[in-house]
């Protein structure tokens, strides 16, 4: 076991499923003790954490510098809304179509670009991210243009409409689902192959790792997970619009993973929590200077603490023991 994982998840006595269940219940229950505002911030925070975990797998564990994560988040969000309320597909079909769309786009980007050097993936995904925003803005009545789409809400499932703290529970399920998949992958031969590809692709190939295939799978899988998260996001405020899915947030996600500690799940969680909440905490104290604090933090992490905050924690706990 790697040091610094969630202590909570390490309890060995419980069976796997029970562990996840308890985590989900605890995280969801918290929502019922919060006001509307804190619940909303909590929901959006959980979504960022979900995205950061997925992006950490792609960037931190597999070493792929991609800027398309938010585009896939957006493809998921827009597609579920369009499939449900413009094409009037049944809910499960709409979800499956949304996932299929993300996988299709991910393969279309990953297959040509992962065969080239990492730099080209960065360029290709940057282009995709930009193109996606253009398509959203120019998409006429389908995407709603710059204003996006609003005026819809989550359809009733089994005669119930999930809302408020119950919807927070849905997001918790998404997070636990995403994390359990990523954790299983990371703890398997696949996760090790990803890290090997990141550290030394030539040696990885000599050890029998299909480098291109590993990259394509990691990219497609994390992109599809981002798409699923996007579908959940679409019903948080019941509106989707272009600024959410732009390059700016893609960079913020990258910074979260770097500041928290790339390659570590706990790092991604810490980075996402810290950088998402930072403006909320600091804004009342220092006003617009929170942007400055943010910049300093990111630069300091890159220059002085490449292992991120989780690396700092490791050093601290090692020196104590």
């Amino acid at each position: 076991m790697r040091a610094g994982g969630f202590v909570f998840f390490k309890t060995n006595h419980m069976s796997g499923l029970l562990r996840w269940l308890i985590a989900a219940v605890v995280l969801s229950a918290a929502a019922f003790f919060m006001g509307e505002y804190h619940n909303d911030v909590y929901r959006k925070l959980l979504l960022w954490v979900t995205l950061a975990l997925g992006y950490n797998f792609l960037f931190g564990i597999c070493g792929q510098v991609a800027f398309s994560h938010f585009a896939f988040y957006g493809i998921g969000a827009y597609s579920i809304v369009i499939f449900l309320f413009q094409l009037h597909l049944p809910f499960p079909i709409a979800v499956l179509c949304g996932i299929a769309l993300c996988i299709l786009f991910a393969l279309a980007v990953a297959i040509p670009s992962t065969r080239l050097e990492g730099f080209y993936l960065a360029l290709a995904t940057l282009a995709l991210g930009q193109l996606f925003i253009v398509v959203l803005n120019e998409g006429g009545s389908v995407t709603g243009g710059t204003g996006g789409i609003a005026n819809y809400r989550l359809p009733e499932l089994f005669g119930m409409r999930v809302r408020g703290p119950w919807y927070t529970g849905v997001i918790v399920l998404l997070l636990v689902f995403t994390y359990s998949i990523l954790k299983r992958l990371d703890d398997s031969w696949f996760g090790r192959a990803c890290r090997a590809v990141r550290d030394n692709p030539e040696a990885a190939a000599a050890m029998g790792v299909d480098v291109a295939r590993t990259k394509v799978i990691a990219f497609t899988l994390t992109s599809a997970l981002a798409g699923v998260a996007g579908m959940v996001y679409a019903f948080v405020d019941n509106t989707v619009n272009p600024p959410i899915f732009g390059i700016e947030n893609a960079f913020l996600l990258l910074f979260m993973v770097i500041v928290g500690g790339a390659g570590r799940h706990a790092g991604a969680v810490i980075g996402a929590v810290l950088l998402f909440l930072l403006p909320f905490w600091l804004s009342p104290l220092v006003g617009h200077h929170h942007a400055l604090v943010f910049g300093v933090l990111v630069v300091a992490a890159i220059l002085f603490q490449p292992g991120g905050l989780i690396g700092l924690w490791d050093r601290f706990s090692r020196s104590r023991s």
Binding site: W189, R192, R195, D199, A203, V209
Partner: peptide, 16 residues
């Protein structure tokens, strides 16, 4: 070596 992996995991990559 795979610099980000401990010794045992380096060996496990060999068993890929």
């Amino acid at each position: 070596p795979f610099a980000g992996l401990p010794v045992i995991d380096n060996v496990l990559v060999g068993a890929h």
